[in-house]
Design a protein around this nucleic acid. Sequence first.
DNA 1: CAGCGCGACAACCATCGGTTGTCGCCTATG
DNA 2: CATAGGCGACAACCGATGGTTGTCGCGCTG
Lengths: 329, 329
Amino acid sequence: MVTGVDLDLAQVRAFVLAAEELHFGHAAEELSISQQALSKRIARLESVLGRRLLDRGGQGVRLTEAGRRFLEPARQALAAADRAVAAVLGTHRPLRIDVWGHLYAPMRTLALVAGGEPRPELGHGRDLPSVSTALLRGDIDAAFGRVHAPLPAGLRYRLVRLEPVDAVLSAGHPLARAAAIRPAQLRDSLLWAPGPLHRLDFLHRFADSFGIGARAEGANLGLEHFLADLAADPRRFSLLPADVPLPAGPAVRTVPLVEPTPLYAWSLLWRSGADHPLLDTLIGAFVREAERSRWLEYDPARDWLPESDPAGRLRSGPAPPTGGGPSPT
Amino acid sequence: MVTGVDLDLAQVRAFVLAAEELHFGHAAEELSISQQALSKRIARLESVLGRRLLDRGGQGVRLTEAGRRFLEPARQALAAADRAVAAVLGTHRPLRIDVWGHLYAPMRTLALVAGGEPRPELGHGRDLPSVSTALLRGDIDAAFGRVHAPLPAGLRYRLVRLEPVDAVLSAGHPLARAAAIRPAQLRDSLLWAPGPLHRLDFLHRFADSFGIGARAEGANLGLEHFLADLAADPRRFSLLPADVPLPAGPAVRTVPLVEPTPLYAWSLLWRSGADHPLLDTLIGAFVREAERSRWLEYDPARDWLPESDPAGRLRSGPAPPTGGGPSPT
DNA sequence: CAGCGCGACAACCATCGGTTGTCGCCTATG
DNA sequence: CATAGGCGACAACCGATGGTTGTCGCGCTG
């Protein structure tokens, strides 16, 4: 099925530009060559193909029927070759990705899934509003964290992981030795929030949903301080995603939450219409990993998601998750 | 995003072949050029890209990391260019399509739907087994007819039309003047088969399904003889698709069958993995026409299909109708 | 008619892309 | 160890390609 002709794409490029401009001089200018050089390129291409592609005459330059048939496939060939060159030169600018939304940012998971050439530049965002601003301004290409209402217009997201959340307790807490804890059992405990609770959507809604009235706030000084603050009071508990690797030490314990298990919903977020060539690759990599690792398993009878999460009302929000959103199984 | 480099695809071709063979001499042979010429092509490509694509040494030729990244996109660029050349030269070989399965082969319908450049070559197949052999041998590219069990492995099909079947009767038949006939009314008639009935799957199953015990066979000498044989005995009837244009004459009549209406299921059949560039175009054209003309309307309460048809058990046969099969509405 | 714009032809020169002949390197074998 | 064979690169040669500048032929307009 190979026709035996391997084109010189410089000639194809000349033809495509001339066909678009219908003026040899302008096309030559775009290529920074002389009109005569461009004319020669086209003549040679026509000779190789054995077909007249452009009619030249008093009324100007016009496409022939053969030229018309060739134009779109020629564009595609040029595009494919551009992709090939980009692939070998690795000339894509690295993706800039910010992670936000919890004390523990799963940078390792992100790096593993998003790894490839060129390696993405990973950074930290403070919260959804600031990350959204950075996306819309073009300071970053994508973000990774928990998307909740309200989501600004102009952004798109895709839910990629529903991670179980554990309770993390002071070692002196009455439930510290339990094999598992039902959220309802925490009703009389003190919820410890590393920062203003009204700004920590997940914790806030967890407390509201399960009737946890006692709440205290501290400053967010990182995971170590957070754990130390928990250990300081045997009534305190808080929440962390299950995969967090905790430092060794008996001062705090993590216990799985069940009936229901709260899930932390990690999503990829990007600007609508963003055209970085590697963005689709990143999204695809996460989609594949989500399937492979069964990250999107969800059973409403077993699990809990806050109402503000993508599984809820965000479906009819200002930026509908076209091609995204959860698929509860 | 244009990188400013327009490749000479002769160089790319040389690289791809060398990468596949990992031997410059063999690759050169395939291109009918000298090893030195091939070596030069690759060296020039490497110079243009500024990357070493192949390592040459005592252990033979090996791909570099850059070469690995380039190989698949390079293949795609070559394929895209081949398509461009084929588009301008119109060098696709015409599709060869055989029609089989009934006295009346709907060549006009086929030609209308499949029409395009280059025009397909239409031929006649005898029955499903012989057509299957021709497909698997590569003698034809596609076939059009009624697919029924058993279907040989290595073939794929797509149902494209469910055509109502009429009764065709001798003019002297007691039901010849009826506006419509229920199959059950034909129980005491004589089914006329143009050929061995056990070889005519549709007729055979119709007779079994509706309890038509009286059957007679003749030779298949074409439509004219068939009609003449019917006219010769007032008890005789047979079946024809409703769209058959009958010659003028009062010797036979066609009457619609209802309650249920038998449907003749026309499908496209092709070899799995067939790579003729126009095959997808053909399939697409039929899919579009089927939608446009509502060819796939089917109501199990109103219509009848033999058990051996794609709507039935063929779904779990040796060649599952991936991407095909009926969608009863 | 003259002037202008446009693409092609001509002459020139550097580069490309093929050939044949030869060389350098590596591996296997006796 | 020496020798033979295989493989890809270098060298020299020559025709083709692909760019340049200068010029020509054609069509259109005022």
